[in-house]
Amino acid sequence: MTEEIIIAGFGGQGVLSMGKILAYSGIMQDQEVSWFPSYGPEMRGGTANVTVILSDDRISSPVLNQFDTAIILNQQSLDKFESMLKPGGILIYDPNGIFNPPTRTDLKIFKIDGTRLAAEKGQPKIFNMIVLGAFLKAKPIVKIENVRKGLEKSLPERHHKLIPMNLEALELGEQELVEVR
């Protein structure tokens, strides 16, 4: 199994850390992983994206132009990456700020209203975990148990008290995923 994922949105939305948590979860289930960010003059409010690959085999290219899944968090990223999905691929997007929804008919398309849900909870920082939960509902490539292990391994001990809140956000994302078509 190899899963090639692009996560794209604004800097500050937790795009890179979502990818990192996903990669760590892959390691926890003995997979090979790679995580390659766009880097450079990106900052809060600019665009940010990361390519994450999880595989049972050695990973060849960490840089891709075709993806199995796109997790899309703003309009610019939708415009850029919709065409780069493989036929039959999965596209998950947060409708907040999307004025031109996806048009391809050969994809499985899902929505997760992460921005609104995080705001309702009064915890904007859990936004990326809500979206990750939604993705894992649509495509359960890693077990939630392994996400928890990954968080334990990647977060310093003093932040471990935040893990339950993050796992709840994952669950919320799972529940709120909406299949568009």
Partner: peptide, 10 residues
């Protein structure tokens, strides 16, 4: 190069 420097792997 910048890719190998910036990417994360196991």
């Amino acid at each position: 190069d910048g890719v190998i420097g910036q990417m994360m792997e196991k």
